[in-house]
């Protein structure tokens, strides 16, 4: 069996398993039976045209309100993810890097990160981290990602450039050490230099235990974050899966060829 075949094989205890997922938003079905299996250490890219359901998938996995799951299931380490509250999912190790991170005026970044980290630790039955210990840790993490310290003192994403906002997402990813990271259109609004910096951050966090799901519209991002598997989505389904070369093929021929397949 090829490496790719191994990856696509149904694994009893994969990290994240989406089975025949059907999702509606206000009476309109967006996902019509989507399946996806992600194992530890893998980086999956999900590509597809606007409206194919990529962001819906990421929102449903993270637990954003407003989506109605009408069929199928999502398992995380074998557990029913959809039965958990969004903050429980976060504590279990599901992280969503937002396409448009929000601004929270008056709340310093480090204060926000400290509150969030402790909420997660508490949910897992771990001791809370004291302010000095946290400060030390967050400084180390920021340093390892070449993120300037003064960003930690500013209000969460307030006045941040597009690149800074994305780096703040990566900082959080590094700090919370999640098992699965979903990166929703990380490349949107970034110039090529900012994109490279952000991608370097993501690559630094790749590990044999951690899986990443990279959602993107363009192949460009995948030059920097090289995926193990590429899925093409169209009209609420995965219509084709393959290796990284599939992304290049798409760049050549566009999404049109898959429209009929869906």
């Amino acid at each position: 069996m090829t490496r790719l075949g191994m990856m696509l094989r149904k694994n009893v205890m994969s990290l994240l398993e989406v089975k025949d997922l059907q999702v509606r938003v206000e009476e309109r079905e967006i996902l019509h039976g989507l399946s996806l299996t992600v194992n530890p250490g893998e980086v999956h890219a999900i590509m597809g045209p606007n409206g194919s359901g990529k962001s819906t998938l990421s929102h449903v996995i993270a637990g954003k309100p407003g989506y109605e799951v009408t069929g199928g299931q999502v398992l995380f380490k074998g557990e029913d993810l959809l039965a958990m509250a969004p903050n429980e999912r976060a504590a279990k190790g599901v992280f969503l890097a937002f396409q448009y991170p929000v601004e929270i005026p008056g709340v310093t970044t480090w204060n926000f990160l400290h509150a969030a980290l402790n909420a997660q630790r508490k949910a897992r039955g771990e001791d809370e981290m004291s302010s000095p210990a946290f400060l030390k840790k967050v400084r180390e993490v920021a340093k390892s990602l070449s993120i300037p310290q003064d960003m930690l003192k500013r209000g969460v994403n307030v006045g941040f450039s597009g690149g800074e906002k994305k780096r703040n997402e990566i900082l959080q990813m590094a700090l919370f050490e999640p098992a699965v990271c979903i990166l929703d259109e990380m490349d949107s609004g970034l110039d090529i230099d900012a994109l490279r910096i952000a991608a370097d951050g993501v690559n630094a966090l790749r590990s044999p235990e951690r899986a990443m799901v990279v959602i993107t519209h363009y192949q460009r991002l995948l030059n920097y974050i090289v995926p193990d598997v590429v899925h093409v989505m169209s009209k609420g389904r995965v219509v084709k899966s393959g290796g990284k070369e599939l992304a290049l093929e798409l760049e050549e021929s566009g999404y049109a060829q898959f429209e009929d397949a869906a």
Binding site: A85, A91, V107
Partner: peptide, 24 residues
């Protein structure tokens, strides 16, 4: 909703999130 969802995705409960935003 977006701000609340961002906070709960980071592990905070709804109420913790509101407390945080209001204190800010």
């Amino acid at each position: 909703e977006d701000v609340l969802f961002y906070c709960v995705q980071r592990g905070l409960s709804q109420e913790e999130a509101v407390g945080l935003v209001v204190n800010g």
